[in-house]
């Protein structure tokens, strides 16, 4: 018997030498071997940096208005030009970064968490629970999302934090539907039944055996959701319900400058580019994550 355990530990040590990689490390290795994902990560890192340290990076006060220099095209003094009120667009875009990132991430966090739980319960339990939850989701989907968000805002009051909650709540049904659909397709698999047979409790089966297998679809949807959330915030801001002036927010800047698209296109182009780059970065990262989370497509 002693001999046997010796043997086992000897084999283990050689194993450690052969395969030092843990699961997380393997995922990371796969992620950074994907060029798109690396580009996305770098952009998100830069955006995060700008969001945190923006105050010290901006050349002008983003809210300082000088009507004498309104609509100036890009120049060495004002890199992205000035807007209709003579504010420096570069400074305002830097100032808007943290709002856009916070709004995008927290709205998705809200809808993802609640949507996943509701979808998981509906898909796994089935029957009446499923019917009740999904009919409620259908009711929410039947109302145009921006209208529903406005209704929530009317109930909650103005402000960017309320906008986040409203946008988060409005997109719950999308996540619930996706998660429910994925769970329905995965839960009949033998390995889920096997998990039940060895004595797993339902909660563990859902979150340990089912959710990891549908994570790729959820992650991809969530990264796309960040961009939708950013755009929805600007829509609310445009209606005067989101960010309150004079604070800078990309979508709000875009909305307010839309009348000057021919006379001063730079007032629209730069906030637009900022939104596009952010959305693209999250999509690239999402794609990379999808591959990295799936051991089958992981390159070793």
């Amino acid at each position: 018997m002693e001999n046997n355990t010796d043997n086992i530990s000897a084999i283990q040590t050689t194993e450690v030498l052969e395969k030092p990689e843990s699961q997380l490390r393997e995922m990371w290795a796969s992620l950074i071997s994907n060029k798109g994902a690396v580009a996305g990560l770098i952009i998100i890192a830069i955006l995060t940096f700008v969001a945190i340290f923006g105050k010290w990076l901006m050349p002008y006060d983003p809210n300082y208005s000088d009507m004498a220099i309104s609509f100036q095209p890009p120049s060495t003094a004002h890199w992205f030009g000035t807007d209709q009120l003579g504010r420096d667009i570069f400074s305002r875009i830097i100032d808007g970064t943290h709002i856009s990132l916070t709004v995008g991430l927290s709205a998705v966090a809200i809808s993802l968490t609640i949507g996943t739980i509701l979808g998981a319960v509906a898909g796994y339990r089935g029957g009446k629970t499923d019917a009740v939850i999904m009919r409620f989701m259908d009711m929410m989907l039947a109302i145009p999302s921006i209208l529903l968000a406005i209704a929530f805002m009317a109930a909650l009051g103005k402000g960017i934090d309320k906008a986040v909650i409203a946008i988060g709540l409005v997109s719950i049904p999308e996540y619930a539907r996706i998660v429910r659909g994925c769970i329905l397709s995965v839960k009949e698999n033998d390995y889920v039944q096997a998990a039940k047979v060895v004595g797993n409790k339902d909660v563990r089966i859902v979150f340990k055996h089912i959710v990891p297998n549908i994570l790729s679809s959820i992650v991809v949807r969530a990264t796309l959701g960040i961009s939708t959330a950013v755009l929805d915030t600007s829509a609310l801001g445009f209606l005067g319900l989101g960010v309150q002036p004079p604070f800078a927010e990309w979508g709000d800047m875009l909305g307010r400058a839309r009348g000057f698209i021919f006379s001063a296109p730079h007032t629209l182009v730069f906030p637009g580019i900022a939104i596009t780059i952010t959305v693209l970065a999250f999509n690239l990262l999402g794609d990379g994550l999808r591959d990295a989370l799936d051991p089958k497509s992981r390159k070793i």
């Binding site: 390995y191 039944q193 096997a194």
Partner: peptide
């Protein structure tokens, strides 16, 4: 029921790929 275990027919579907 823990004392009763099951071996599945399809070995390709009965192991969690993750």
């Amino acid at each position: 029921c823990r004392d009763i275990q099951l071996i599945f027919q399809d070995p390709y579907a009965s192991l969690n790929p993750r």
